[in-house]
Design a protein around this nucleic acid. Structure first.
Lengths: 192, 192, 192, 192
DNA sequence: GATGAATGAGAATTCATTCAT
DNA sequence: CATGAATGAATTCTCATTCAT
C-alpha cells in the first residue's frame, strides 16, 4: 500500500467514526504513520481527501457500476433484478465504514459545492436509470415506476440507517422488500 | 421571542445551512443579536444547543405525536393510515431547515453519546410501534410488516434526501407510495 | 449574619479551597445565596474582597493582638512567653481555612500593591516587636534574638505548611519547639 | 536554548512575578518569542507548564540531591551538617524567581492533584530523612529531632518569605540559626 | 437594598497549512 | 519524496462588571 493509499485508508476509517470535521489532519497522518508534511504532498487541502473519500461512499458508486455491466436480458423479471441490485448494495455497504461515511457525506455535501453538484448529478442519473429499468420490466406509469424505485432505494438506505435499531438479517430484509414491491406491481399490472 | 428562543432559532437556521460543526457560536450570537457571553447563559456548551436542535429535527418527533393522538378506529384501512402518517411527516418537514438538520444529525449522532442513545431508542420505538399498527390493519407476517413499515419510512426519507434530484410533488409521491405498499398487501393477503 | 458577612464567609471558604484566582464571583454569590448584583453593592471589585479576606488570615493578626494585650510582667520567662504566643498562633489557625488563605496570600500579595505594602509593614513590625520582647527576657545579641524569633515563627508556619506530611500533635510540636529555643539560650547566656 | 527551554524560562520568570494564574499563555509565548501554537506543541495544557515549573521550585529539589550525595562521615558534627544544608538551600534560592515560585506553588498545589501528591510525598521524605540524619549526630528523642529539623527548614523558609521585611544577610542568618539549634542540643544532651 | 440578564474583553485551545531541512 | 517544527487565525469558553427593573 503506497503512501497515498495509506492516507486514504486511515482517513476513511477515521471519517467513518467521527465525521469529516471532527477528524484532524494530525490524526490521519498519525494513523497512517507518515509525517504531517507528507499529507500535503498528496492532498492540496483537507477538503480534497474529504471529497475523495466521500465519493467512494456514495451508493451510486455501487449501483451505477451495476447498470453499466448488466442489462435487461440477464433477468427474468423485476424481482430478480431488484434482488440483484440489493445484493450489490449490501455488498458495497458490507464495509460498514462506507455506510457511515455516506451519511456524513449527505450532511456535508451542501458545504462543498463540487461535492453537492456531483451528488445531485449521480443521484438524478441513478433515479432516471433505475426508473427506466423498472419500466423495462413492468408496464406502469412512469411516475409510479419512479416512486417504486426511490422507495426501493430509500428502504435499503433506511435499513443501513436503522440497522442497530431493530435487527433483521439483511438477506431477509431484502427478500421481503422485493416481495412487497413486486407483489404490488404484479397484481395490478401486467408484467411485460 | 425570548433570548433563548432567539438563539435556538438562529442556530437552527445556521445549522441547517452549514452543518453543526461549521457554524460558530459567534455566528449564532451575531444572528440572534446578542452578546457572546449571553449564549453561555443559556447553553453550557455548544454541544448543548446542537443536541437540542438535533432532537427537534428527528422524524420521530413528528410521528410519535401522531401515534399518541390517534388509533386504529380513526382509519378505514392501512392506506388511509399511511397516508395520514405521510402527511404528518411532510408537514413536519415542510420546514426545510428541519430536514437538513435531520441529515446532519444522522451524521453527528455517533459523536454525541446521549444523542446516539436517544436516537436509537426513539428509532426502535418508532419501528416497533409502526409495525404493531400495520399488523392491526393487515394480516401478514410480523417480519414483513416491519419491512413494510421501514420501507415506508425509508421512502419518505429518501424523498427528502433526493428532493432536488428529481422533482415530484410530495403529495403525488405519497399517493404513489401508499398505493404501492397497499396494493402489495391487498393482493397477497386478506385485509382485516 | 448580614449579607456582607455571608459574602465574606463564603468567600473565605471558597478561597481557602481553591485560591483567590480560581474562585469566581459567581461561586461566591451562589454559596452565599445572594444575587450577583448584590456582591457589587458591598465590594466595588473582586480584589476588595480578596484583600479583606487576605488580611484576616495574616499571622500578624493573631500575634499583634497578643502584643497589645499582654506585657513582660505576665510571664516568668521566655519559654512561657513563646508558649503563649504559640498557643495563640495555633488558636488562630485552628481554623484551617485561615491557614490555607494565608498561603494563598503570600503568593498573591505581590500582585496587589496595597496588600504587599500592608504585609511588609505588619511583618516588619511583628519581627521588630518580637525581637524586642525576646530581648526583654534574655541577654543576647540583637541579631541572634531576631533570628530566634524568626525561627520561632518559621517553625510554626512550617508546621502548618507540612501538617499533613508528618503528623505530630500541635501541642507536642510547640512544646518541643519552645524547649529547643529556650535550651539554646538558657545555657549560653544568663537569663535576665 | 531550544524552544521548550525558552518557554520554560519565560514561564518561570513571569510566574515568579505574577503567580501562575495571572500569567497568560500569550505573555509566555510573547516573551519566549514564539507563536502561540508552538506553546501547545510542547505543553498539552497550561497546567502542564505550571506543574513543571512548580516542581523545579520545590525546596526538596535542592535538599534531596544533597541527601543523596553526602553522608554522615563528611561532617564533624550537626552544626557543620546543618550549615552545609543551609548553604545548599540558599544556593538554590539565590535564584529569587525560584523562591517566589515556591510560594505560588504552596498556594496552588491543592488545585492540582498530581502536584499536591508529589509535594506531600517529597515533603514527608525530606522530613523523615532529615530527622534520621539529625539522629545520627545527636542522641535525642526522635520527636525532638523531627521538630528540630522542621524548625530548621521553617526558619530557612521564613527567611525567604520575610527577606524584605528585615534585612539580615543570609550567611549571618544561617550562622545564627545553626548556633541556636546546636547550642540547644549541646547543652541538653551529649553529642555523639 | 436586591436582582439577575446581558455584556464583551480576554483567556485557553485547536488545527489547517507552510516551509526549511 | 519525506519530515516535523513553527505558525497564527479561528474558535470555544470564562468571568468580572454593569444596569434596568
Amino acid at each position: 500500500m503506497d503512501t497515498r493509499e495509506k492516507l486514504l485508508h486511515s482517513a476513511k476509517k477515521l471519517f467513518a467514526s467521527k465525521g469529516f470535521d471532527r477528524v484532524t489532519v494530525d490524526e490521519i497522518v498519525k494513523d497512517a504513520g507518515v509525517a504531517k508534511g507528507t499529507f500535503y504532498l498528496y492532498f492540496k487541502r483537507k477538503e480534497d481527501i474529504i471529497r475523495e473519500v466521500a465519493i467512494m461512499a456514495m451508493p451510486f458508486q455501487a449501483l451505477s457500476d451495476v447498470f453499466k455491466s448488466v442489462d435487461r436480458e440477464s433477468f427474468r423479471n423485476l424481482g430478480d433484478y431488484l434482488r440483484f441490485l440489493g445484493e450489490k448494495f449490501f455488498e458495497h455497504y458490507s464495509d460498514r465504514e462506507l455506510a457511515c461515511i455516506f451519511f456524513h457525506t449527505v450532511s456535508i455535501k451542501s458545504s462543498i459545492t463540487s461535492l453537492n453538484d456531483l451528488h445531485r448529478e449521480l443521484c438524478s442519473k441513478l433515479i432516471k436509470e433505475g426508473t427506466r429499468r423498472v419500466l423495462e420490466f413492468v408496464n406502469i406509469e412512469e411516475k409510479k415506476a419512479e416512486v417504486l424505485f426511490r422507495t426501493f432505494l430509500g428502504s435499503l438506505l433506511h435499513y443501513l440507517y436503522s440497522e442497530d435499531c431493530s435487527p433483521i438479517d439483511h438477506k431477509e430484509y431484502l427478500e421481503n422488500l422485493v416481495q412487497i414491491l413486486t407483489n404490488s406491481i404484479n397484481n395490478s399490472t401486467s408484467s411485460k
